[in-house]
Design a protein around this nucleic acid. Structure first.
Lengths: 328, 328
DNA sequence: CTGAAAGCGCTAACAC
DNA sequence: GTGTTAGCGCTTTCAG
């Protein structure tokens, strides 16, 4: 910047003003400065500006687990749209589905060191109370999909129990009495809630929950396919399967299609192309990109109203029929 | 940091050393400093550190068009993995499929102002020669999927013409003589290359390219479905359709399934769940996440070897059969 | 091994 | 309108 000032024969401050489009600069000078900027290929250093002025970095952090999962990429898309409208960049930090709580906390601290204005986080398992300090010191955080343990903060979550409850009710209404459950790890809060919701619906209908074939800790479509395979081969083969998330549903579809079996499938999460799947599906649907949008909006609102009480939004789910039926 | 130094009764520099894990600090002092860090809730300001030391920001920018497209999210996932291994964060800037070239350039400049170490870019249409200055001044850029106009740089692209050529050849080998083409805008370089590859294959087989039903500028699955619909209703209805990208393929599948028509579909891009689609598909497949990975690796390599000549990688494609057939 | 001073690139005050 | 002087939070000399 000093070089630009010298080249244009003006002071540092004038260059600063031109670069920042402050109106009160004589046009001749401004022109000379602009010329110098171009010949020298000068790019203002946003970091230095931020440092001095104490202004915001116009950056928010997004901590998700895996962008190749359509749920997270929809979430990210929704959040990115809002950020864009606010002239803010998003640092997307992905942390594997199986990363440790410590890695997650460390990643969040790393983002704080980079002085992001705020964070949108899909929390993993583990205690998040250490983050209270950061939030108190002015880095707002909005939690999406999963509420953190040990922390009362802004959050946007789904009605997980309600959605699962509705799906099971539908299966029961369709005459199913033996329903298999395929779930991810129960220490993932929404998974636990879905599991509870599903069991509650079964109990209400007088089904014996303890006799329902159940697989937990299922992380991948492949794992889900295996779990379904075992269930269907067992003595107490279910006539319907409820899947706790999109990966489980995919695995169940694969296996049931492979067997050309007519087991009914219900699952949490809609996903792209579900409507073209070769078996009928009952899906608990919601708008993931809207979740991202709302979380981002909540964060930007929080920048203005630092002191207000944390807000918690619970988004409803809808039950839909999908898939293209059993074929001819 | 001054506060921490005062609290611990040491100098600024000692705090700096402790924070940066420099070994040569007496353990008693270090302990006092660490205690002060915790009581004061001190977080080092990475931005300030970068500014002074002139060190890297450990941040790379990723400019893609739409994360909700599985191609881009796979690309992002691949790149993010490499970045993570290098202790680097990724700023993912999305810019709509229909953003203007000016917006794109402005976005890239914005990232440069934030002093990213380098950029991975899916270039849109338009001239990119203005970026030569930035690259020359030390911000390496790797272009993925689309080579920029007016710039010789590192890039990772697909053998677009070859892939399309192979797909058309297959259709012709299957006996199709009337093949419809559904393409996105031809000013998108890879789309143009695919179009050329497809036409070349048709010419080589003695088909009249000028008589092939052709739709261009098709941006969405809905648009593709309409285009296919028009083709199938015309006098010269094709017996096979070649789609220039995943969105076009999806639209074609929808329409053909809706009609229960037995038109053959070939398309560029594999996509999640393609193998469960209700009609047979011939797909030009490649590894999008590998593209992201290679681009990122190329970028990190470039950090070490600033001066070497730009490198251009062309990844091969494979023809696969997908879908579950015509049903019973 | 530790500390004092200087300065990274920029902007906020205040002069001029 | 414009220039000068500090100093953001940190690291880097280089002297103790």
């Amino acid at each position: 910047m000093t070089d630009v000032a010298r080249e244009a024969g003006v002071s540092l401050k004038t260059v600063s003003r031109v670069v920042n489009n402050v109106a009160t600069v004589e046009s001749g000078m401004a022109e000379r400065v602009r010329a110098a900027v171009i010949t020298l290929g000068f790019r203002p250093n946003q970091l230095a500006a931020t440092l001095k002025s104490g202004a915001s970095t116009a950056t928010v952090g997004l901590v998700v687990r895996d962008l190749s999962n359509s749920f997270y990429s929809a979430l990210a898309t929704g959040a990115a749209g809002v950020a864009r409208r606010h002239g803010t960049q998003v640092i997307t930090a992905t942390i594997g589905e199986s990363a440790s709580p410590e890695e997650e906390i460390e990643l969040i601290f790393e983002l704080c060191r980079r002085r992001v204005d705020g964070l949108i986080i899909v929390a993993g398992p583990g205690d998040h109370s250490v983050l209270a300090g950061e939030i108190g010191m002015g880095t707002p955080m909005v939690f999406v999909d999963r509420v953190p343990r040990g922390l009362v903060t802004d959050s946007v979550v789904l009605d997980n129990a309600g959605g699962a409850h509705a799906a099971i009710e539908r299966l029961i209404a369709d005459g199913h009495r033996q329903i298999g459950l395929v779930m991810d790890h129960l220490d993932i809060e929404p998974i636990r809630a879905r599991f509870e919701g599903a069991k509650a619906a079964m109990r209400e209908a007088g089904l014996l929950v303890s006799q329902a074939p159940t697989a937990t800790g299922v992380r991948t479509p492949g794992g889900a396919a295996e779990a379904v395979s075992r269930m269907l081969d067992s003595n107490a083969a279910p006539s319907a399967i409820f899947c706790g998330n999109n990966r489980a549903t995919l695995g169940a579809i694969e296996e049931i299609w492979r067997r050309r079996s007519r087991v009914a499938v219900a699952g949490f999460d809609n996903f792209p192309l579900a409507h073209l799947m070769p078996i009928p599906l009952t899906l608990v649907e919601y708008d993931a990109s809207d979740m991202g949008r709302r979380a981002a909006e909540m964060l930007f609102r929080r920048f203005e109203r630092h002191t207000e009480l944390p807000e918690q939004v619970i988004l409803p789910t809808t039950l839909i029929q999908s898939g293209i039926g059993w074929g001819s």
